[in-house]
Design a protein around this nucleic acid. Sequence first.
RNA 1: GCGGGAGUAGCUCAAUUGGUAGAGCGAUAGCCUUCCAAGCUGUAGGUUGCGGGUUCGAUUCCCGUCUCCCGCUCCA
Length: 484
Amino acid sequence: MIKEKEITLKEIVSHSKEYGFIFPSSEIYDGLQAVYDYGPYGIALKRNLQKLWWDSMIKINQNIVGLDSAILMNPKIWKASGHIDSFHDFMVDNKDSKKRYRVDTLIEAFAEKIIGEGNKDKGHKIIDSMNKLLEQNDLDGLKDLLNKENITCEISKTSNWTNVRAFNLMFETKLGSTEETSESIYLRPETAQGIFVNFLNVQKSAKMQIPFGIAQIGKAFRNEIVARQFIFRMREFEQMEMQFFITPGTEKDWFEHWKDTRIKWHKAIGIQEDRLAIHQHEQLAHYADNAVDIEYKFPFGFRELEGIHSRTDFDLKSHEELSKKKQKFFDTKLNKSYIPYVIETSIGCDRLFLTILSESLTKQNIDDKERTLLKITPELSPIKAAILPLIKKDGLPEMAQKIYDDFKFDFETVLDTNQSIGKRYTKQDLIGTPFCITIDHQSLEDDTITIRYRDSMEQKRIKIDETKGIINENILMKNILMKL
RNA sequence: GCGGGAGUAGCUCAAUUGGUAGAGCGAUAGCCUUCCAAGCUGUAGGUUGCGGGUUCGAUUCCCGUCUCCCGCUCCA
């Protein structure tokens, strides 16, 4: 009788550290908040996820190509994208209720209430002066406005506010090695802009015709106000984004297309359907006319894993305006030029990693014996096969070594000769190795081995010659790609 | 940032009202072993998150600080 237990975040964190998937950054110095490092098995899994995503985009789609743009970019890009303005939040806390508000939404709500009550002039006046203060970054002025208008917290009904503070969500750094000549630049808060500013370079050099996509995997950086829940929200994280450029007017169809394609992808890598959810955005970001999140049921609840956004021509148009370089595409079929619309698919690689761990870390109770294993689909497993001589003598280790030296060119293989066979099976279960190859005395006689399947613990005796082929069949990314 | 909880060996956790910091698992070396964390022997591993204070003496009490978890808040 097999019983499976729900996994907690704590267990995932602990397992990740103990078995070499994720370590807290700078741990010997007490760490660094919301930054994590990937260990040996972690990076192996992460690379596999990236490879699968990359192939799902550029390998099997004739009209999607890759790009690797730099993290550092001309700061004007962030002006055009709206990040310098909208990534800059002014916050204030009510000392009585301990609630935190964005100053602009607080004042706007107050002004709208006044307008609703018939006092239009006063309401608009408040909004005007607020906008002026926001533009001037006048924190004291904003606080004075709160006090002057006696704007209160809904919960405590008081106007006992802390000072207004600015939260800049972009990491700032300096370009130039001397203090005097250096210029402020930003670590990119999203990879998308690197794609947009290379739109014409890619289109012309790779001779792309609309519709086409540009895919990119890379680091992005955000100074989150509260960054928590393990690797779910990190300050430094990896995005996998694909921007798909289309003819204006076709955005609804393409939006649906990519939404469906991406959902199919998550199912193809083995995520249970009832742990996936679609969340339709009601409030849209400054650039979007439609947006959904693909959510996964993490141990702390349903949270965004991937975003599909219809970004209109917002970004390319902004870049055209600020750079004064045309961002138009001449469509030979329509015989006219236009700024393309864009559908974005954007998934957090680290969130996907956490999804895979959450989905695959399994605690079973088999006849009162506890068993822990990582049921990662073989295509993504960090290690594909472990070669295990049953005992450490009689020539079994030598034979194992030979098999290892043969297999290692095909897939990630480990050789383990320590301890009892049971312990070694368990060790492989804990890092998600789908196949264990055991060499026993019979192997010496008839060139057969036993292959043990991780999930079922079943064993089969097969010819050594067939073994590599059987494993290869099960670990090819092609298996997943063909389901798409 | 606020409120609550926590931090002792790689992991899970002990340590009477303040009195020399321990176990299990894991790691490692050797022996033994024909299939699911077996056994025996040895070894390594800790300024009890860090800093200060009270005390003859602090893992234990007090203050500060860092990190993690939960809730609020925020989220392109």
